[in-house]
């Protein structure tokens, strides 16, 4: 399989606090990598570094062999290829759902409006929200907004999707509807890097699991090994904190 994303020995620090050091990760086309770890371990920051929302102090990030550099003029063009969905579903409040979906394709990619609209409607239909196309974001539930946010990212035809704790702010009964969408994306072979606290979901969706703690990758492996046969004591402790047996 072709490598899409290569993260090589990146380090991130804020003044005198080191978030992580020497982190590396390679993602192949069609692969779903799930990153888990305790709060504050740097996993979200790691994800944000991938599309240069955070700058890095050391190392390099390559997408299709092209360096992602926060100071580069080419950054917007590279970011088009990286879809990102955030924890707090930041739809644009002044636009309707349909307008939210069409804004970036029409303005950035210069997709003809009719074409963008057609695609937006078919994707909305797929996530069961066609009837909400003319509503404003505030009229939707959290789960609905998050599904729209996923569709908004898909509208740019990204090569890779980054999902940053996309269910962390949702009511439990809404988590499912969002994760079902992600599962169906995984089935159709989308490349994704997912940060989540939903262990059941991680197990179902991941081709590869990565456990980050204290700014380092402590353990990685296939979902089955990772959950059934963790190698490190630290991961065992971490997984145990999710079980009530």
């Amino acid at each position: 399989m072709d490598v899409i994303l290569e993260v090589k020995n990146i380090s991130k620090s804020y003044e005198d606090i080191t978030v992580f050091e020497n982190l590396s990760l390679t993602v192949k086309k069609g692969e779903v990598v799930v990153i888990v770890g305790p709060s504050g371990c740097g996993k979200s920051t790691f994800l944000r570094c991938i599309n240069a929302l955070e700058s890095i102090q050391d190392g390099e990030i390559l997408l299709d062999g092209e360096a992602i550099d926060a100071s580069s003029k080419e950054l917007p063009r590279i970011r088009e290829k990286i879809g990102m969905v955030f924890q707090s579903y930041d739809l644009f409040p002044h636009l309707t759902i349909l307008q939210n979906l069409m804004l970036a394709p029409v303005k950035v990619k210069k997709t003809p409006k009719a074409e963008a609209e057609k695609e937006a409607l078919s994707l909305l239909d797929r996530v069961g929200l066609l009837s909400k196309k003319d509503n404003f974001p505030r009229q939707l539930s959290g789960g609905q907004k998050q599904r729209v946010a996923i569709v908004r990212a898909l509208m740019m035809h990204p090569e890779i999707l980054l999902l940053d704790e996309i269910t962390a702010a949702l009511d439990p009964e809404m988590v499912r509807e969002v994760l079902d969408v992600v599962l169906s994306l995984a089935k159709e072979g989308r490349t994704m890097v997912i940060v989540t606290h939903e262990m059941q979901f991680a197990r179902a969706v991941a081709d590869r699991m990565v456990f980050i703690d204290g700014g380092k990758i402590v353990e990685e492996g296939s979902a089955q090994e990772f959950f059934d046969d963790p190698k490190t004591e630290r991961l065992r402790q971490f997984l145990n904190s999710f079980s009530y047996d």
Binding site: N51, E80, F86, D90
Partner: peptide, 29 residues
């Protein structure tokens, strides 16, 4: 919020596009 800026940038918008289509209309309202 900065999250609005980040959402716009993550979609591949330039800073100018982010300001024109997202930040300014929201700020104005």
């Amino acid at each position: 919020g900065t999250l609005q800026e980040e959402s716009a940038l993550a979609l591949g918008m330039s800073k100018r596009q982010m300001f024109m289509y997202v930040i300014f209309p929201e700020a104005l309202s």
